[in-house]
Design a protein around this nucleic acid. Sequence first.
DNA 1: GGTTGACCTGGAGTACGCTCCAGGTGGGAT
DNA 2: ATCCCACCTGGAGCGTACTCCAGGTCAACC
Lengths: 125, 125
Amino acid sequence: MGCCGPVSVYTPAEVVEETGFSLDTLRYYEKIGLLEPVERNAAGQRRFSQEDVGWLGTIRCLRDTGMPIAQMLRFAELVRAGDHTIADRIALLEEHDRRVEAQIGNLTERKRYISDKISYYRSVL
Amino acid sequence: MGCCGPVSVYTPAEVVEETGFSLDTLRYYEKIGLLEPVERNAAGQRRFSQEDVGWLGTIRCLRDTGMPIAQMLRFAELVRAGDHTIADRIALLEEHDRRVEAQIGNLTERKRYISDKISYYRSVL
DNA sequence: GGTTGACCTGGAGTACGCTCCAGGTGGGAT
DNA sequence: ATCCCACCTGGAGCGTACTCCAGGTCAACC
């Protein structure tokens, strides 16, 4: 924020708490470049920025909707490359959005089959 | 069916076509017991029954809604064990049904976040 | 009756996404 | 000062669900 205010910084434990990712997963994400190299304190321990935590929120959303890591990596690269990639980011997210929609449709349909099966079993009892 | 009519029988290729599972997957499912030992012709080649194909349809539905193989195996065992397991089958399917519902809810919520992100990016362009 | 292609088996390998471990350092409360 | 616990690294291991392969057999059509 300002030049003098305390910039919010998170310890690994805090980020685990806030994002729901395990510490191992956070290190893994950093290792593969899904997370940019995280700041360290004098002892070499990670100190995550507010921005890191926000980005992890995005990651969480994409992961939970089934985006493979490889594609998240591509998205991360677009984000890092700057504003001229915004159209590409939109394209990527729109494609993903369509896949999520398809997933929801699929699940909804399959759920009907399961419910029917349950009804059938109930009728047999 | 009758004692003399042709019982419908499917070659591996036909089952692949109808179920969308690969031949390797079908063999794998048989190996782990998700499919009961499939009938063979004189040469040892599989000849799937109508029942097998129907069961594979159920498997497809459960798989596509994210049921792990271990749980499908438990379900398969219940089915094989006979009618006295129907209450257990209902319980299993109901629990799965709730998970599917939760999945749909989750996806729907996440999808909103993604759509919002797209809108944001659009507004920036 | 010869060729092509579907199918067979057992077992190894792959892809993905973490998760765990050993061995070690540093911070911070008492 | 001491102790404990969080954290560090590099690398190995794991769980899930297939997928592929080599080497071989049979069927079916020309």
